[in-house]
């Protein structure tokens, strides 16, 4: 399924904005700014490089303001970069915007492309004309998508009357009707309940498997990443700081384990001294172990010796902890 040729390649991408700066909130400061003002250059993306193979599902994560959305917008031809080389499906996005967007699908979690006052099916019909989708492909896709998303009735109701989850499903249908080989998803599950999230994740995986569609998605929801992504790129300070398969992220701290202990009787804080305690209560504690310094079997023996242990769990460091750690790394 995973082809070898890169579908996207980005080299040394830079994008900076000029932003106005004002010192104080007051009226006087606002008045002064009528006459003189200072500007600040914000480097949203700074020397970013990566590539994407056909058939991948790639997660793009990073803290707020890291440059994820800017990257997506440059890749889809909406923004012109300050410098750098980008090739998407063999095209330079900002030079061939109209030709490129015909072959990509985009879902922006915060912005709708459906016509608010009309049923989604009307937007679909417009898209059919816009993308030149043949009748049979259009009918087949509407049928297929609305069946797996359970949207048969909802696409005939005005969009303004849909719930957020139903609307997002309609957005997905809209973005995928013309069978694009490449789809960008910008926070596709934001604000959705667990069931809607699940439906959308299953949908992405099914489409990826059946049509070989390449997906690139940004998200703040780590379970999106764990459930659907093959590979993860972490962006921070406008550049890629981690670019590996999901497995590598899970085993990022392979030499660290988190041990959860339960005690038969209350344990005092000083009994735990000498261990790296993450959390502790009267009858519980989680302790991080560096297996290079303390081999696991020795550490466990020590727990049973020193403490009234009734139950023990040995875990990898959670993906959330790993990401927190990576986010906190300095530039």
């Amino acid at each position: 399924m995973h082809g070898l040729q890169p579908i996207i390649s980005v080299t040394n991408l830079e994008k900076s904005f000029k932003v106005q700066k004002r010192e104080n909130a007051g009226l006087a400061s606002a008045f002064r700014s009528v006459f003189s003002r200072e500007y600040e250059t914000v480097r949203a993306v700074h020397g970013l490089s990566f590539s994407l193979r056909q058939g991948e599902i790639r997660g793009l994560i990073g803290p707020n303001g890291a440059g994820k959305s800017t990257t997506i917008k440059v890749l889809s031809g909406i923004l012109f970069p300050s410098s750098g080389e980008v090739s998407v499906l063999g095209m330079v996005p900002w030079k061939n915007r109209v030709r490129l967007v015909r072959q990509i699908g985009v879902v922006l979690g915060q912005k709708s492309q459906l016509i608010w006052d009309l049923p989604a099916i009307d937007t679909f019909a417009l898209h059919k004309k816009m993308y030149g989708i043949p009748d049979e492909v259009f009918q087949r896709n509407i049928g297929y998508f609305s069946e797996i998303l359970h949207m048969q009735d909802h696409i005939k109701k005005p969009v303004r009357n849909l719930s957020l989850g139903e609307r997002m499903k309609a957005e997905f249908m809209c973005a995928l009707l013309h069978e694009p080989p490449l789809v960008f998803l910008d926070e596709p599950t934001i604000g959705l309940d667990v069931i809607s999230k699940d439906a959308i994740r299953t949908f992405i995986r099914d489409v990826n498997r059946e049509k070989g569609t390449t997906f690139i998605l940004t998200t703040h929801d780590l379970s999106d990443i764990e459930r659907i992504c093959h590979n993860v790129s972490i962006i921070n300070y406008g550049t890629i700081v981690f670019d590996h398969p999901l497995e590598r992220l899970k085993k990022y701290f392979a030499n660290k384990k988190l041990i959860e202990l339960q005690f038969r009787e209350p344990v005092r804080a000083q009994d735990l001294s000498g261990f790296k305690v993450q959390e502790s209560g009267d009858l519980t504690a989680s302790i991080e172990i560096d297996t290079d310094a303390h081999p696991l079997e020795k550490a466990i023996a020590e727990f049973f010796q020193r403490l009234p242990v009734s139950d023990i769990n040995i875990n990898n460091i959670s993906i959330e902890e790993v990401i927190k750690h990576i986010y906190a790394l300095k530039e």
Partner: peptide, 8 residues
């Protein structure tokens, strides 16, 4: 953004 994503 939405308009720019359309092939028109």
């Amino acid at each position: 953004t939405g308009d720019l994503l359309k092939p028109v």
